[in-house]
Amino acid sequence: MTDPARDAPTSKARGYSVRTLPGFAIVALFTFVVLYAPIMILVTYSFNAGTSLAIWEGFSLRWYQRAIANEQVQDAALRSLYLATVAASVGTVAATMAALATTRIRRFPGRTMIYALVNQPLMVPEIVTAVALLIVFAAVKVWTGHTSMIYLIVAHTAFCVPFAYLPIRARLETMDTSLEAAAADLYASRWQVFRRVTLPLMWPGIVAGLLLAFVISLDDVVITEFVKSAGQDTLPTYMLGQLRRVVTPEINAISTAILVAGAILVSLFFMLTMRKR
């Protein structure tokens, strides 16, 4: 028994399928190998019993134990988490306000300009922002003599905003504005409309934005490296510093831990944004 309705489209689609393009499979395979093989090797050697990054000497968790016991790693990890939490939270609040302003206010002159300005960190090369921040903050540090975490927090918050802004704005744009009109029609004040209707409905977008911003802050190297003062290493800049000296599988262990944390957060992000609306 053949089902003509089922056969027809596939046989027709076959002619256009990218699978039949010459070399498609090879290019795809090559890309995946380049992307994932080094990561798999890195993860594998984080469990190596020996000190080598190339010779397998049996399974062990010693590098994880060493990393956890390492006070510098502890210090850098806590600083990373603290920085990412503060920067992502503040950035997400700012991004939420920006998203509301650009979707819930009647079209105003310069709105496209605002989009571009909010998204600046996505377009300006990170090294340029880093150098610019270094110069400004260096001047401020000399002038005030103040060297706390505030510079890193400000810098991270700034580049967290666009990453949080994108999913929140996407969520707001798919939301039906007649829901807010209906709430106002049913005697809700502006604040109540926001609190009871807009906020609960945009919430998945906000959480998604927060997660994305958190991950971006967690693995930033360039801006952090330029802005940090002495003794303000985050996990990525600590690792970078270690690589200049002696490389042990401890670095692999830390990398694997960051990889797992990032993968969990990004999966949560996709679950939130893909969820049926």
């Binding site: 039906d176 209906a182 709430a183 106002a184 029609d185 209707v197 409905l201």
Partner: peptide, 20 residues
């Protein structure tokens, strides 16, 4: 007067029921 201060209610064309 803003809509929330008018004793008037609306049935919207797309109903606009609160999905949450």
């Amino acid at each position: 007067l803003p809509p929330n201060q008018r004793p008037i209610n609306t049935v919207f064309q797309n109903y606009a029921l609160f999905p949450h």
